[in-house]
Nucleic acid binder design. Structure first.
Length: 226
DNA sequence: GCGACAG
DNA sequence: ATCTTGTCGC
């Protein structure tokens, strides 16, 4: 698939400016109802070793189809700064996506979509960069607060609101009793449509299967490094 | 100034 | 993200 070069900011300062510019291009409308081919993105890293990124091609009816992967030397990584995660991991994801035999219709990313201080979490950033629909599924909160208590029942969700009251996504209970996931639209998808999409992903445990499998693959690939 | 802070 | 053992609970 076509992958434009990903700019590497020379400083966190420049990264912030770039985010504010790109955030203006995020499109918060669109349905994912007809989409069946997605790429789940997750990464694993351990100090002293390269970061391993996995792009797992997954078909909603056929299941996992292919595991794409890429490694980036630790020295080449942008530092981890809350709010600037995409500058650290996106380059690796883009390389992993290049190894896929087919272009996905949607990106499912481990991280925030627009539920971000400047409206450009890694899912939104990748979506805008590739002009592809994308959804962010994070395991913890970065920005915004749940509108109210989240019921324990599997499938329940409550809106995630920005300090100014603007809806950013949802706190979502994927399975009874598990900790919530934070779902927010990345690009070219509406708030409710993003949640609807995640809701129909097969989910055996806390994480939707595509992301869980990508996570497992990234972990074993990292452990297999010498 | 203080607290929060994806992976 | 990873560092880390046992432990509580379905």
């Amino acid at each position: 698939m076509e992958v434009p070069p990903f700019p590497r900011p020379e400083s966190p300062k420049a990264a912030l400016a770039l985010q504010r510019a790109l955030a203006k291009r995020v499109v918060l409308s669109g349905s994912l109802e007809g989409k069946r081919l997605l790429a789940a993105l997750d990464a694993s890293h351990k100090r002293g070793k390269p970061l391993v990124a996995v792009a797992l091609l997954y078909h909603l009816e056929k299941g996992p189809l292919f595991v794409g992967q890429a490694r980036v030397p630790e020295e080449a990584l942008f530092p981890y700064v809350p709010g600037l995660l995409s500058f650290r991991e996106a380059p690796a994801y883009l390389e992993a996506l290049k190894t896929l035999p087919e272009a996905p219709e949607v990106l499912l990313v481990d991280g925030q979509g627009i539920a971000h201080p400047r409206g450009l979490g890694i899912a939104s950033h990748l979506g805008v960069h590739l002009d592809l629909p994308s959804v962010g599924v994070a395991k913890s909160l970065l920005f915004g607060r749940p509108e109210g208590p989240l019921p324990q029942e599997a499938g329940s969700a409550v809106r995630l609101l920005a300090p100014d009251g603007r809806p950013l996504g949802y706190a979502y209970r994927s399975r009874t009793g598990v900790k919530p996931l934070y779902v927010s639209p990345g690009h070219r998808v509406g708030l409710e449509e993003a949640l609807a999409f995640v809701r129909r992903l097969p989910t055996r445990f806390r994480l939707p299967e595509p992301l869980r499998l990508a996570h497992i693959e990234a972990g074993r690939a990292l452990a297999a490094l010498d």
